[in-house]
């Protein structure tokens, strides 16, 4: 039988008092790209550490290809690799940093060629970088070398924690390209946590949303993080940075919880909608993105410093002339907002 790469059940993890992560069920399929989205402290890094078997969950079970797995288990040790946020390079040369994993695996063959190839994937040349010391690299180069040290191992699963967060544009592009190449070449399963939503929406087969340690939703969504203010008419509002108000129904949990608005439910109009019962706010279209599988378009709308993503068919976009730079009215049914 063909098992998924990961199957998680009743996972719970904490560092002391506070629950960091609590996932009831999650399946990640072979060869898929899974995106992880969520604010800082939502548990993304913790989930990645658990998935890479660096840490053992306090409760619950992670099955790797159908078998329960824990840190150091033989089934996962050489198959899963994690690229941490702000990666760490050992105090050795670039060559020896990349060599490390190969040596542990007793890989035979032309090692130098393998290392050189891995460096080329991330846009670095062995000639220039083999003998570089760990302290002779820029932030972007460090990130790329760290990625090369994992790519050289041809991992079955590569987990990446904010791989493009602190690097220059060029490095960011090279890192994205290299990660996708790993999937194409060896069918590597990728799990990527990133703040870069558009990229994740673009490349991921599934996007998981994490908030306060809980898996809120898979798929595309927009988050409105509290605090909310209660109004006299019994509704709740969040003041947006540009002075507009986002009006919502009463939150279920509390005033500081989070409201999630699935992208499919976001309507865009060039004029303020007169439809009763719909909340609407004004914004500017910042980006269009063609979603891969379907013929859907992802439209990003900028409202002050927050972004709302909508998913519309290509035809709708065309007929309504929803192009970047245009002012649009974003409207949605407050009843359909999910509370996390």
């Amino acid at each position: 039988m063909d098992y998924p790469v990961y199957h998680i059940k009743n996972l719970h993890h904490d560092y002391g008092e506070e629950t960091i992560l609590s996932v009831d069920e999650l399946t990640i399929h072979t060869n898929a790209i899974t995106g992880l989205i969520g604010p800082n402290g939502s548990g993304k890094s913790t989930l990645l550490k658990l998935l890479s078997f660096v840490e053992k969950p306090k409760k619950g079970e992670i099955r790797f290809k159908g078998e329960p797995a824990v840190p150091f288990s033989a089934a996962t040790r050489f198959k899963v690799s994690l690229l941490t946020q702000e990666p760490y390079l050992m105090k050795r040369s670039v060559y020896h940093n990349i060599l490390y994993g190969l040596k542990i695996r007793n890989v035979a063959g032309d090692i130098d060629a393998k290392i050189n190839e891995a460096l080329n994937w991330v846009g670095l040349s062995g000639k220039d970088f083999f003998s570089r010391k760990w302290y002779e690299l820029s932030g972007g180069e460090t990130q790329r070398v760290a990625l090369a040290a994992r790519l050289v191992l041809k991992p079955e699963v590569l987990l990446m924690d904010e791989p493009t967060a602190n690097v220059d544009t060029e490095s960011s592009q090279l890192i994205r390209k290299a990660a996708l190449k790993a999937r194409e070449e060896w069918g590597t399963t990728l799990v990527i946590a990133s703040h870069d939503r558009e990229w994740l929406y673009d490349v991921s087969d599934h996007v998981l949303h994490l908030y306060q340690g809980k898996l809120i939703r898979s798929g595309l969504g927009n988050f409105f993080v509290g605090p909310f203010n209660s109004r006299e008419d019994g509704l709740f509002e969040k003041k947006l940075p540009d002075g507009q108000h986002l009006i919502l129904k009463k939150p279920i949990a509390n005033l500081s919880s989070i409201a999630i608005l699935p992208s499919e439910l976001v309507k865009l109009d060039l004029m303020e909608s007169a439809l009763p019962g719909l909340a609407s706010i004004k914004g500017i279209i910042s980006k269009l993105l063609l979603e891969k599988p379907g013929r859907q378009i992802l439209i990003s709308v900028q409202i002050g410093d927050i972004q709302i993503t909508s998913k519309l068919p290509l035809d709708t976009v065309k007929t309504n002339h929803l192009y970047p730079g245009r002012t649009v009215w974003v409207s949605f049914d407050p009843d359909k907002v999910i509370w996390g």
Binding site: K49, S52, F53, V54, P71, F72, R77, F78, V80, S81, L82, L83, T84, E86, P87, Y88, M90, Y100, G101, I104, R105, A146, A149, R150, L153
Partner: peptide, 18 residues
Amino acid sequence: MDYKLRTTLISLGANRMQ
């Protein structure tokens, strides 16, 4: 020692002795 070292070593496949 940077705590990230341990994470890095494990994620590269090192066992406890390594």
